[in-house]
């Protein structure tokens, strides 16, 4: 892997007025931002050609720090806004930064339909198991039994497996890793950018200040270590007994389908098919 220096990261950040950022100490969002930028730098994508679109939430604050065409949209709607950008300018690299609540609760509908269309969006979903920005309410991924400010007696909701949801909906590149696995995060994001079609990279992240505190998960390094132990490669997970699988998450690339037609290409084909060819009226 090509080494991207810390200095070169600064080329992709906005420097006036934006820092210090809003994220809490120990938050994984910065790691993910670093990974996104390193992936972009490695691929040598043009800043002018990147649109970074987000919704509302902690992770969705990311675009303001990055020096791209950036859109901090409405709660849950990032993918729908991004669909508009990508449809109109298919030549742009459109990346969506979203969270578990933003993408799978309020934005669940847009998430599955963009996956169904297989439109070429790169969705970076940072899953911290909680609504952080509003102070710790449970999300569709908050583990069963866990505490949130709105599950004071423990969460009775079953959870989403976001990657399975995306695959079921028709996404063609789906991968999961954790913020602890920063190099893998960067690698998956890079592959997601290169993939022509709807790509999802779910990144399990640590929220020590809200989720961690409510559930006595320890400080940020402890939570990082926990992710190291709990988010394991698919093959390793398959060898475990059902009892051993409790609290374990898989990481890896679940699907990488390059056969399915990408949506904006399909629309371009439609446009081309309607063009009346000139000069061959005799044929």
């Amino acid at each position: 892997m090509q080494k991207i220096s810390q200095k070169s990261i600064h080329k992709y950040l906005r420097h006036d007025k934006k820092f210090p950022h809003v994220w809490c100490p120990g938050c994984s969002n910065g790691i993910v931002l670093g990974a996104v930028i390193r992936a972009i730098a490695e691929l040598d994508l043009k800043k002018d050609n990147i649109a970074m679109v987000s919704g509302i939430g902690c992770s969705s604050r990311m675009p303001v720090y990055a020096d791209f065409n950036t859109l901090h949209s409405l709660h849950g709607r990032a993918i729908a806004y991004a669909t508009g950008v990508k449809m109109y300018k298919p030549e742009m690299d459109v990346v969506v930064i979203t969270g578990d609540g933003d993408a799978t609760a309020i934005g669940g509908n847009h998430f599955i339909h963009a996956a169904r269309r297989n439109i070429d969006l790169t969705v970076i979903l940072i899953n911290n198991y909680i609504y952080g920005m509003t102070g710790g309410q449970y999300s569709p991924t908050t583990p069963h039994g866990d505490k949130a400010t709105t599950t004071p007696y423990g969460n009775i909701d079953p959870t989403f497996d976001i990657c399975k949801l995306a695959i079921g909906a028709g996404a063609t590149f789906v991968a999961r890793t954790s913020a602890y696995h920063a190099v893998e995060t960067q690698s998956f994001i890079k592959q997601a950018f290169k993939h022509k079609g709807f790509s999802l990279v779910e990144i399990i992240s640590a929220c020590p200040v809200i989720y961690g505190r409510l559930n006595k998960k320890g400080d940020a390094p402890t939570m990082m270590k926990q992710m190291k132990d709990d988010v394991i490669p698919i093959k390793q997970y398959e060898k475990l007994s059902p009892e051993q699988r409790v609290n374990k998450q898989t990481r890896g690339i679940f699907i990488n389908d390059t056969e399915k037609m990408e949506y904006t290409l399909a629309y371009q084909e439609l446009i081309d098919s309607l063009k009346v060819p000139k000069g061959d009226s005799n044929e």
Binding site: A51, L71, S73, A80, T83, G84, V85, M87
Partner: peptide
């Protein structure tokens, strides 16, 4: 949402 996104583009 899509028309606002497209308008920005």
């Amino acid at each position: 949402s899509a028309i606002i996104g497209a308008s920005l583009a």
